[in-house]
């Protein structure tokens, strides 16, 4: 395990990001895209770092209270007044809310330990959260890990139940996380594999190991723009073929795009209108062209 590192929060500009799908925000301010400023990636390392940072901030606050008390005491002595009350360290409020999110814990499950033993350096992190097993591996070794999970007799994860991805625009070092949810029907267990990929990286396709990954990877490409290497048919699956942009990215506007003008696919660029005008000109008909406004 590497040293805990807190993901830094970059400074976001006040203005919306410039891009091909930006609105007139002054006309509709409620439609402004709010970009996330933190990386809510569930991870034991991040959780420990957050705990450590919170404890350090608490300690610094206590030290500042003490220093303030000392200066106030010295000032009161110099002026001949009564000494102020010494500060009391605040006790953390007891949180009885049992509905809070379970935090990540050290991996104790045999599957995770076996994966770490077999893969060694290729495992970046293993942890358990709410009884769910998560194994984060390096982005180059995902196909090998999937093969191991599928074929190893001790693991024997037969099914790729789901494969999806998330966009983390505020993260440094990676832009997306691709998550593989494996299910072992015979052993009645579930495992989550995760890779972190930067923009433009092509992860290896899981179709060779799990053929069911075909459409799921096409959906990831359609919605987030992650292309997979060695995929049999890397085309869009939900949006039309000539769609621009990737709708599940955080910088994509969620509202308002349906109100744009409709131009049908066979007539993009007014090709049919042009032909109709030419034909009308040959026949000597004055065909009025409809005005857009």
């Amino acid at each position: 395990m590497a040293e805990p590192d807190v993901p830094p929060t970059p400074d976001m500009p006040d203005e919306a990001p410039a891009g091909p799908y930006v609105y007139d925000y002054k006309a509709a301010p409620n439609r402004q895209i709010v970009m996330p400023k933190t990386v809510p990636l569930p991870s034991l390392r991040t959780y420990l770092a957050e705990q450590k940072a919170a404890a350090a901030a608490d300690e610094a606050k206590w030290l500042k209270m003490q220093a303030d008390f000392e200066t106030a005491k010295a000032k009161a002595e110099a002026e001949g007044k009564d000494a102020p009350k010494p500060p009391v360290r605040p006790v953390p409020r007891k949180d009885d809310n049992d509905m809070k999110t379970p935090w990540p814990q050290e991996a104790k499950d045999a599957d995770l330990l076996l994966l770490q033993e077999r893969l060694g350096d290729k495992v970046e992190e293993i942890f358990e959260q709410a009884g769910e097993l998560t194994c984060q591996v390096t982005k180059d070794s995902i196909l090998e890990v999937l093969q191991l999970c599928r074929q190893d007799a001790a693991l024997n994860y037969e099914m790729l139940a789901d494969q999806t991805a998330t966009h983390y625009p505020a993260a440094t070092g990676f832009a997306f996380s691709v998550v593989y949810h494996l299910t072992s029907i015979s052993r009645r267990k579930r495992l989550r594999l995760r890779i972190l990929v930067p923009e433009g990286f092509l992860p290896e396709s899981a179709c060779a190991v799990y053929p069911g990954a075909n459409w799921m990877e096409r959906e990831i490409y359609d919605m987030l723009g992650i292309r997979f290497a060695n995929h049999p048919d890397m085309t869009r699956i939900l949006c039309p073929e000539d769609w621009e942009g990737y709708p599940l990215r955080k910088d994509y506007p969620t509202v308002g795009w349906g109100q744009r003008d409709i131009s049908f696919r066979e007539d993009r660029g007014g090709r049919l209108d042009l032909i109709a005008l030419q034909k009308a000109g040959q026949l000597g008909i004055n065909l009025k062209q409809p005005k857009a406004d």
Binding site: C239, P247, T254, V255, G258, I262
Partner: peptide, 11 residues
Amino acid sequence: GGPFDSYHTIQ
């Protein structure tokens, strides 16, 4: 358009 004031729905 109904509730779908979104990128994929024609209003």
